[in-house]
Design a protein around this nucleic acid. Structure first.
Lengths: 182, 182
DNA sequence: ACTTGCCTATCTATCAGTAGGTAGGCAACA
DNA sequence: TGTTGCCTACCTACTGATAGATAGGCAAGT
C-alpha cells in the first residue's frame, strides 16, 4: 500500500467541503452519500464512518459554516460604515466567487423539512449575524437597529437568491445598497 | 365502483395543489409522485398520467403560480403608495396564511439544480414581478426604479426566508418597510 | 524484541425502502 | 367505438444505513 498522506481529519473535512457545496447548490435533499463518496474516490460506507447519519453530516456542515462566517466577520467595533460594507461583502462573496447560495439561506428556505438538529444551527446562524450587525447599526444612529438588522439580513439573503436566479450580481448590489441606507 | 365525481381537470388541479404546497415547504427534491398520490388517494401511476415527468409537473405548477400571482397583483396604474403596499401584501400572504415560502423563491434558491424548463418559469416570475413594480416606483419619483425594483423583490423574498427561519413575521415586515422607503 | 490488544479508516456486500417511470388492462362515458 | 382516467403490476436505479472483514498504526506488557 502506498504512503498515505490522508488522515481522518482530512477526509472528514473533505466530506464537509463537498457536502457544503452540494447543499449550497441544491439544498438538503439534492445530494447523497454516494455522490460525495464518488467525488472523493471512496465508498459511501466510509462517509457513514465519519458521519453516522445525513442529519449529523449536515448539522456538522452548518456548524462549521456558521463558525467560519462569524469568524470571518471578526470584530464589529470599527467604523460603522466600514463594518456594514464588510458585512455585505461577506454575503456577496458567496455568489460572486462560486455562484453559491448562503448555506443557511438555502437550509432556511427548507426549514420546515430539515432535521431539527440542522434547523437549530440555521436559526443560530441568523441570530449570530443579527447580533453582530445590530450594535453596528445602533452606533450609526439607527432609530430601530433591531428592525434594520432584520431588514439588512433579509435583503442580503434575498439578494443572493435573486442574483442566482437572474444570473447577475446587479440585484444583490441593488438590494445591499438600498438596505444599508440610513 | 362508486359514483365518480372527479374528472381530469379536478385531479390534475389537485395534483398541482399538493405539489405546490410540498415544493413551497421543502423544494424540488423534497417531494415524490407517491407522496402526492397517497395524499389524493390515487396511485403514482395516475399522477404520471396527468404529468409525464416530474419536470413537467413542476413546470406546470410554476406557470400556474406565476399566472395567479400576476393576476392577483392586477392593474398597477393606481396610487403608487397603495400599489406598493398591495405588492408587499401579496408576498406577505405567502408566509402569513400558510407559513409557506414563495414557490419561485424556493425554486430560485435551487436554480442551479432544477430542470431548465422549470428554471425558465422561475426567471419569468421574477421578470414579471419586476416589470409590474418598476413603473410604479418610477411614477413615485424613484431616481433609479430598476435598482429599487430589484431591491424590493430581493427584500421581500429574503423577508419570507428569514421569517420562516426565525418563526416570526417581524423580519418580513421590517424588510418590507425598509425596502419601500423612498 | 515480541506479542497482545485496541483504534482508525476503509473496504465489500447487502438491506429495506423509495425514487421516477412504464406497460397493459378495465370501466365509464361521449 | 374511441377516448378518458385510473388501476395493477412492475422495472431499474438509487436512497440512507448496517454488518462484517481487513489492513495498518500505536502503545503497553512481558
Amino acid at each position: 500500500m502506498q504512503t498515505r498522506e490522508s488522515n481522518a481529519v482530512d477526509t472528514a473535512g473533505r466530506i464537509m467541503d463537498v457536502a457544503e457545496r452540494l447543499i449550497r447548490t441544491g439544498g438538503y435533499d439534492a445530494f447523497s452519500f454516494r455522490e460525495i463518496a464518488t467525488e472523493l474516490g471512496i465508498k459511501s460506507a466510509s462517509v457513514h464512518y465519519h458521519y453516522a447519519t445525513k442529519a449529523d453530516l449536515v448539522a456538522a456542515v452548518a456548524k462549521r459554516y456558521t463558525d467560519r462566517f462569524i469568524d470571518a466577520l471578526g470584530d464589529n467595533s470599527g467604523d460603522p460604515e466600514h463594518m456594514i460594507d464588510h458585512f455585505i461583502a461577506n454575503y456577496r462573496a458567496s455568489v460572486a466567487h462560486e455562484n453559491l447560495m448562503c448555506l443557511c439561506g438555502m437550509l432556511g428556505a427548507e426549514i420546515a423539512r430539515i432535521p431539527p438538529s440542522v434547523a437549530d444551527h440555521v436559526i443560530q446562524f441568523f441570530h449570530q449575524n443579527l447580533e453582530w450587525i445590530r450594535p453596528v447599526l445602533a452606533r450609526r444612529g439607527d432609530p430601530d437597529p433591531y428592525a434594520s438588522a432584520y431588514a439588512l439580513v433579509a435583503a442580503l439573503e434575498g439578494g443572493l437568491l435573486l442574483a442566482r436566479s437572474i444570473g447577475s450580481l446587479v440585484p444583490f448590489d441593488a438590494a445591499a445598497r438600498q438596505a444599508r441606507r440610513l
